[in-house]
Write a protein that binds this DNA or RNA. Structure first.
Length: 1033
RNA sequence: GGGCGUUUGGCUCAGUUGGUUAGAGCACCUCGUUUACACCGAGGGGGUCGGGGGUUCGAGUCCCUCAACGCCCA
């Protein structure tokens, strides 16, 4: 017998085991079936999953389960991402915190081992989370971006791009994380505004001519960088530059309101003043630059040129700008334009190097202080202003990023990016919602070369061996020898003129790229004097290959042939550029085919304060906590129903008090607390931040969201409806269902099932998960439970109707379970099992049910079952039910009492409603004494008109009359009617409306006004009667 | 500075191509424990749709503008 509650805590595990035993999740190459493939966006192994991942994976599972039921060979390929820098950073940080060791203390091998241990631990946890959520991945095909299969794909791709000359090495200014000692991409840098200073310096002019200034003033927020200056720039045409600024301001003023004019005017005035004061000086400097005047760089005692460059802004500061090409992105561009030397001041750890011996070994803050002091001592320091400065911080280590000149490997993006843009432009890849196409195309359109080196130890090591030779012929010889070792199919070489830190020619680099991992050629290459590049590749390089590397590429596997291109990629918008775009271009490069047909971008989950969920903020919710409290189906349904087309959804987060289970809203304040006192039971609980013994002594609160409570209730509702059905199926005998002979309520159910099936099927196809959830919720609760089950009760008690009713209701439940299964796999599977025990054969033409709903066929909407007339008729019935209930309620008629009811309606409605008499009794406790055009009100009458369906409902209040209550009800009604009538009259007396609105709209208004007036007359009369009654008493 | 998005009852969200009285869940109020379900049932109160302007016979829905918030990119 079916238990009274769905015990997900024990049943979910058993169900998963049964699915696993039967291999329900597995997909095979089956040419007779159409494949449907999803590759999971591999969660990174840095940490556990939160609800954002929960949403992402729930939606994928809904898709894959639906397609599986629809007869596709559905493969959901799981895996995780090594997330190079993120994971290494976490492990390094722990190493520092717990053992006070750096990675250099323990060495490359030991660190990598520790990261693998971390990976094993978190991968296990992540997979456990996915499994408990019910994700039906083919676990046999689990991949990891750093495993051998993916590694082979990385090597093959790198080799191919290298051969095509799409990979090159160059010195570039990179964002250097001095803590992790690696370059990080722009995407891993966040800018914060901090208080700082703006220092003014004076650089002496060497041998100024008469009339020329002896000093040039510059200003900087980073004084220590002056040691690496290689020029000072002035604008080549300061007059024109100032004119342009003024013109822009005037243009801006035109579009502003008058009150903002003053502000702009002030700027214009300042500009004019500046023009008169500074322009001659700037022009003088410009001429000095043209004349080749040099400056003496203080402290470093180096001669540097005065140059002209548009980067110098005449409207700012002194109009002159120092140029430090190796340590500032803008200066780097100037340096390239002006062919300036680039002096790298820093060691990899952020201390100053031997370029400036006097400062060698100092950290940046120390050097900054020292430089300022030294300049002051030299009398070259000017004003020091307070100023807010933008400081770039590394996302990973939270330390300051230094622009740093380093050798990096790049992927040339021009052709690759174009191919990925074309694929979206011509709809080979469709992005939903479509608004995300723009960002994708814009980003790729910049075609910025992709720096792929990371100075890390965790990742795919760059498969390049290098040596530098003084002569070109020597380099060529070595390259030829290297190629000869394995042939051009597995060895590719390149020779490039080398440059030192200052951009001076320094011989010839030989680069040798090996195609295969663990190649026996490695020692032979090294024997030629080449050394392997110590760096690893950007994680996204391997992620970009995910849709094909996981299927075995570069091997031409049968899986690759069958399952590629994959069908749908389901991900969040923050990685459209970083990941989606790169998958497209890599798929096209490696296979000549796009990696997927569709990309679905789902919303981001924010907490109740509108902030993105994250473990580090403390507002991350672990899906497991939600599953423990509400069950896996509730988690999934709750997530599916918030998956609208918007870009963010809010999910308020709460602590669940471990003492009294009260949910306490999470606030910015309490979410970082180590302990919280429950406002309910006044006892204290601990949080994820608790560390010391005193805090951890308190039990820890789970972090959940009450959003899932509704879903839990829905699961319970479904369970109980099923329980009702099952309790009435003991003597079930299957029999064919002849639709034409069925009563209205059955045909209504079939009609609704047809409609709902169609809506759900189409909705999932279009990724409208929230709509689908709502349709199913409303149908299951408000139609199947509230009406069909209620109507079935008297029919099941009637022997003549029992058997057929059992067949119809079993079929209805069967269909509902299938439709709900992709969203709520566990509870539907459980009920399916019980249903199978009592009604093994079911359906319109009874057939044996499949052993699992998971492997059952998806329902097909039967268009012939859809019957507009039946649905409209049933709606009339529902309206009448509502009317009777409203009157009962307003009259305070006790629920147990039966009330005589008369229903005045058209002959056609009479035909419909007559057979429903029993159900009025069952649903409203009404004794329908009259029904039809001649039905009359009672002497002690409570009427309610339903003009939209031309029905009047009358209740006999003889036994229950409460004149005051009735008068109150009617007067309120009258009030509403009057308001509506006034509105309509105003509308219809508007000549414009009558003349210009479409005739049918006007006609409608006239019709409904007439009805309202008639209704008002009735109500007024009733009020009159009641008042009479009151006065006569 | 640019792009995208959001702003509808106390909370979280729906609202198709502009057209009768703007919906749902939660919360709230009243009544109810009739064997599917109190994780329930019946009924009810509550919003004029961020501000301003415009188009239109008619706007939550279209246009302009301002503001706030979120995310992304400079």
């Amino acid at each position: 017998m079916i238990p009274i509650r769905f015990d997900y805590a024990t049943e979910a595990g058993e169900i998963v085991a049964k699915w696993d035993d039967a291999g329900c999740n597995n997909a095979e190459v089956r040419p007779d079936k159409k494949p449907y493939t999803i590759v999971i966006p591999p969660p990174n192994v840095t940490g556990a999953l939160h609800l954002g991942h929960g949403l992402n994976n729930t939606l994928q599972d809904i898709l894959i389960r639906t397609k599986r039921m629809q007869g596709f060979e559905a493969l959901w390929l799981p895996g995780t991402d090594h997330a190079g820098i993120a994971t290494q950073a976490v492990v390094e940080r722990r190493l520092k915190e717990q053992e006070n060791l750096s990675r250099h203390d323990i060495g490359r091998e030991a660190l990598v081992q520790r990261i693998w241990d971390w990976k094993d631990q978190y991968e296990k946890r992540i997979l456990g989370q996915l499994k408990r959520m019910g994700c039906s991945c083919d676990w046999r095909r689990l991949r990891f971006t750093l495993d051998e299969t993916c590694g082979a794909a990385v090597r093959a791709t790198f080799f191919d791009l290298f051969q095509k000359d799409l990979i090159y090495r160059g010195k570039r200014l990179v964002n250097w994380d001095t803590f992790l000692q690696t370059a990080v991409s722009n995407d891993e840098v966040e800018n914060v505004t901090k208080k700082g200073h703006f220092y003014h310096f004076r650089y002496p002019v060497i041998d100024p001519k008469p009339g020329e200034p002896e000093f040039v003033e510059i200003a900087t927020t980073r004084p220590e960088t002056m040691l690496g200056d290689t020029a000072v720039a002035v604008h080549p045409d300061p007059t024109a530059a100032l004119d342009k600024v003024a013109a822009d301001l005037i243009e801006k003023r035109r579009s502003l309101s008058t009150k903002e004019h003053a502000d702009v005017q002030a700027q214009l005035d300042a500009l004019a003043k500046r023009r008169s004061e500074m322009l001659p000086k700037l022009e003088k400097l410009r001429d000095m630059a043209a004349d080749g005047r040099k400056l003496m760089l203080p402290l470093a005692n180096r001669e540097i040129p005065l140059v002209t460059d548009v980067w110098a802004k005449p409207e700012l500061g002194s109009g002159c700008v120092k140029i430090t090409p190796a340590h500032d992105p803008n200066d780097y561009e100037v340096g390239k334009r002006q062919s300036l030397p680039m002096i790298n001041l820093l060691n990899a750890d952020g201390t100053l190097n031997a370029t400036v011996p006097a400062y060698q070994g100092l950290t940046i803050p120390q050097a900054r202080k020292q430089v300022v002091e030294d300049l002051e001592a030299a009398g070259l320091l000017g004003d020091v202003e307070d100023r807010d400065i933008e400081m770039p911080l590394s996302d990973r280590s939270k330390t300051a990023i230094e622009p740093y000149l380093a050798d990096q490997w790049f992927v040339a993006m021009d052709q690759l990016a174009q191919s990925a843009m074309d694929a979206v432009s011509d709809q080979r890849v469709k992005i939903f919602p479509t608004r995300y196409r723009k960002g994708y195309l814009d980003w790729l359109g910049e075609k910025r070369d992709w720096p792929v080196s990371r100075q890390l130890w965790w990742g795919h090591r760059i498969p390049i061996w290098t040596a530098t030779f003084t002569s070109q012929s020597e380099a060529e010889q070595v390259a030829e020898k290297a190629t000869a070792l394995g042939g051009p199919d597995v060895v590719s070489t390149k020779i490039q003129a080398a440059g030192d830190d200052e951009g001076q020619a320094a011989g010839f680099d030989v680069f040798v790229c090996l195609r295969d991992e663990e190649s026996p050629l490695e020692p032979q290459i090294e024997a030629l004097g080449l050394q392997r590049d110590p760096d690893v590749l950007d994680t996204w390089f391997s992620s970009a290959l995910w849709p094909h590397s996981t299927l075995g590429w570069p091997q031409q596997t049968k899986e690759l042939e069958y399952f590629y291109p994959t069908s749908t990629l389901c991900t969040s918008r923050d990685i459209i550029t970083l990941w989606v775009a790169r998958m497209v271009l890599m798929g096209l490069n490696n296979l000549g085919e796009v990696p997927f047909d569709e990309v679905f971008i789902h919303p981001t989950i924010l907490d109740g304060n509108g902030e993105r969920m994250s473990k580090s903020k403390g507002n991350g919710v672990d899906p497991i906590d939600v599953i423990d409290k509400f069950g896996p189906d509730s988690l999934r349904f709750g997530l599916a129903r918030i998956a609208t087309e918007t870009q963010d959804v809010r999910l308020p987060v709460q602590y669940e008090c471990p003492h009294c289970e009260k949910l306490i809203d999470q606030t910015k304040k309490n979410r970082t607390a180590t302990t919280v006192k429950c406002p309910g039971c006044k006892k204290t609980f601990s949080t994820q931040w608790a560390e010391n013994a005193a805090d951890t002594a308190h039990p820890k609160a789970a972090v959940v969201s009450e959003k899932f409570e509704t879903s839990r209730n829905f699961v319970n509702k479904l369970w109980n409806a099923a329980r009702f059905v099952l309790m009435n199926l003991e003597d079930y005998q299957s029999q064919p269902i002849d639709v034409a002979s069925l009563p209205v309520e059955d045909r209504w159910l079939l009609s609704r099932l047809a409609t709902v099936t169609e809506q759900v099927t189409a909705g999932i196809e279009q990724f409208k998960f929230a709509d689908v959830s709502k349709v199913l919720y409303d149908f299951a609760w408000n139609e199947f439970c509230s009406f069909y089950v209620e109507i079935a009760k008297p029919r099941l008690a009637d022997e003549s109707q029992r058997a057929m009713t059992q067949n119809v209701i079993a079929h209805g439940l069967d269909t509902l379970l299938r439709l709900l299964h992709p969203i709520m796999p566990f509870v539907t599977e459980s009920i399916w099992g019980y249903l199978g025990q009592l009604a093994a054969e079911r359906g319109l033409e009874p057939t044996a049910a499949s052993p699992f709903v998971m492997t059952a066929d998806w329902p097909t909407a039967v268009p012939e079952h859809h019957d507009e007339t039946i649905e409209r008729q049933f709606a009339e019935f529902q309206e009448v039910v509502g009317a009777i209930r409203r009157i009962r309620s307003s009259q305070n008629i006790p629920p147990r009492e039966t009330v005589p009811v008369a229903i005045r309606c058209s002959p056609s409605s009479q035909t419909l409603l007559d057979p429903m008499k029993t159900y009025f009794e069952a649903l409203t406790g009404a004794d329908v004494v009259a029904i039809g055009p001649d039905a009359q009100g009672f002497a002690t009458d409570a009427p309610l008109a339903l003009p939209s369906i031309d029905v009047e409902v009358h209740l006999d209040l003889e036994k229950f009359i409460d004149v005051e209550a009735e008068l109150a009800r009617l007067e309120k009604l009258l009030d509403q009617l009057n308001k509506q009538i006034t509105g309509k009259e105003a509308k219809l007396s508007n000549e414009n409306f009558v003349a210009r609105a479409p005739a049918d709209v006007v006609e409608n208004e006239r019709g409904s006004l007439a009805e309202l007036v008639q209704q008002r007359d009735t109500v007024t009369a009733d009020i009159g009667k009641l008042k009479e009654k009151v006065s006569s008493n």
